[in-house]
Amino acid sequence: MTADSREEILHRIRKGLGKGEGGEGKDPYPPEPGSSSAGAEPYGDGLARVFEESLSGIDTSVYRAGRDGVLEFVTGFIKERGVKSFSIWETEYLESLGIAESLEGGGLDIAPAEDKAGIAGTGIGITEADYAIADTGSLVLLSAPGKPRGVSLIPPVHLAIVRKENILSDMWELFGVLNGIYESHDAIPACTTFITGPSRTADIELNLTLGVHGPKELHVLIVS
């Protein structure tokens, strides 16, 4: 039945477009979507500053640390919140910082990514953003075996660590970079997520309310 439907829909479309059954071969290229209209990239700390500014406009807290200060920051951040458990991505970078071990050593439980109810019970999810977009204040997270999607979504607080060199200027630049990754089909992640601020809704009388489904709080640590 589905096979028939496929043929029938394609037939209807071709008939509607006035084409033969084989199609006529598409135009070599669709029109170009254009490119970034932004000026020259700010150098030095410029992009990070733009990124910080964008985040402050969308109910997100931003922090800065050097590589050496990350562990101390995260430990302090978690202590302050008094959570009992957390979930965290297993990326090379985060592992090199020893965050998971240090927190477990401090008596906190790690919820395994497979356990959704477990993640839901944790107080905080920690990720490392693959990219960030300065212009919009967005984090870009690519799913992978050590990078489950639930960590940035299910706990009430999300702490994202952004390495300064991964901050891009705008969406045009980001899609240029992603295009490179997506070029090989095997390299396309099951899910690429853009996160810009905490979960929000305005469905009741257009009143802004945070944390309706995803995290109520988003914290971003920029590491230089």
């Binding site: 395994p112 489950p148 899910c191 979960s199």
Partner: peptide, 22 residues
């Protein structure tokens, strides 16, 4: 009128074999 929305998901197929969720 937001510059971008809070979440955008680009979904390509189901979870990969070694993925832990999805």
């Amino acid at each position: 009128g937001q510059k971008t929305s809070t979440y955008i998901s680009l979904i390509t197929g189901p979870r990969r074999d070694a993925d832990k969720d999805g």
